[in-house]
């Protein structure tokens, strides 16, 4: 499976691009160039290259252990780079670390505030850290999210801790939000609310969001761009529509497997047949070989499932992956 590099993103119907058309050329909010990292355990991430333009929401997707959190840690300079470079608003994330971090609002998958702190102390820490801290805005976010400002962090539920981090990330005039699995622990209503907030956040075309998740449903109505990584490899980066259109789900019986196998990017076999992930451009050729094959549109979950399941792994060993 090859990497699809992003072209100019295609606007979708929730579009905010009207504001962008006449804007001068500016540096992307985030730009990764051949970023890679190798761990002693053998896990290797990268090389990863993508741009996140201003005014867009990018979903960073992949199964657990794909390298999403590692990539976010690299962006935030919480771990060292082996190769490549990362720029935030044109500034080098290493050399201009402090200036870069002033512009970032960050939410991790677990709460970074001390469990012993009250919500008030968490705010004190943010006040100390960010000169642009806005107390009124923070209070408004807490109220909107229903976070009790008098409680200790450890007494908040996981969902409430997420909301606290989100309220903090939104209250210091950050230009780029980086959210690592922010929806885990949130109920459906809170997730919808979060998506609304993110959409409104990027509306002015001056803010961007990088949003990692393995719950792809979160991205259906909010993400403009998708970056898909799996087992440390960048599989795709580009517009969401392009991502959806790039692959098709091909189904067939056991006797048709040999036709599909050479072109399948991912494969899962059953006793009664198979599901194969095939690049859209390869579908006509397959149908010419066997018109009985069933071709369906593919969901993000199908793509993740078929490029990561045991069957897919076996298939890739069989040199099916290209």
């Amino acid at each position: 499976m090859r990497v699809k590099q992003m072209q100019t993103p295609t606007p979708n119907e929730n579009d905010h691009t009207v504001h962008r058309a006449d804007e001068p050329n500016r540096s992307p909010a985030l730009s990764l160039s051949d970023v890679s990292k190798r761990y002693p355990s053998g896990f290797t991430l990268g090389p990863v290259t993508f741009d996140l333009p201003l005014g867009y929401i990018m979903g960073l997707i992949g199964p657990n252990g794909a390298g999403k959190s590692t990539l976010i840690k690299l962006i935030v300079n919480m771990t060292s780079l082996d190769a490549g470079s990362i720029a935030v608003f044109g500034l080098d994330s290493r050399k201009d670390e402090v200036a870069v971090k002033q512009e970032l609002g960050i939410v991790f998958d677990s709460c970074f505030f001390s469990n012993y702190w009250t919500v008030g102390m968490a705010e004190e820490s943010m006040t100390a850290a960010y000169p642009a801290w806005n107390h009124e805005l923070f209070e408004r976010h807490l109220e909107r999210f229903g976070v009790d400002g008098k409680k200790k962090v450890r007494d908040l539920s996981r969902g409430m801790q997420m909301k606290l981090m989100l309220a903090a990330a939104l209250s210091h005039d950050a230009k780029l939000l980086i959210l690592d699995e922010p929806t885990s622990g949130l109920d459906v209503l809170a997730r919808d609310d979060l998506m609304d907030i993110l959409r409104r956040y990027v509306e002015d075309g001056r803010h961007s969001v990088l949003f990692s998740t393995h719950i792809t449903g979160d991205l259906e109505h909010s993400a403009d761009l998708i970056t898909y990584i799996s087992k440390g490899r960048l599989y795709f980066t580009g517009s969401k529509d392009e991502f959806d259109d790039s692959f098709r789900l091909v189904k067939g019986g056991p006797d048709q497997l040999r036709i599909v196998k050479p072109t399948a990017v991912g494969l899962r076999g059953y006793s009664t047949g198979f599901d194969a992930l095939v690049a859209t451009e390869d579908v006509p050729a397959l149908l010419r070989s066997d018109a009985r094959l069933l071709v369906e549109p593919v969901s993000m979950d199908d793509i993740i499932r078929l490029t990561n399941g045991r069957a897919a792994h076996a298939a890739s060993k069989g040199k099916v992956a290209r």
């Binding site: 840690k73 935030v76 300079n77 919480m78 670390e97 402090v98 200036a99 971090k101 002033q102 970032l104 960050i106 991790f108 677990s110 709460c111 970074f112 505030f113 001390s114 469990n115 012993y116 702190w117 820490s125 850290a129 960010y130």
Partner: peptide
């Protein structure tokens, strides 16, 4: 030890200080 035991270490990665 408070920093580590209370899950506060990762905050060092986000604050604007080298």
């Amino acid at each position: 030890s408070n920093e580590e035991m209370s899950g506060n270490s990762s905050m060092n990665g986000i604050i604007p200080a080298t």
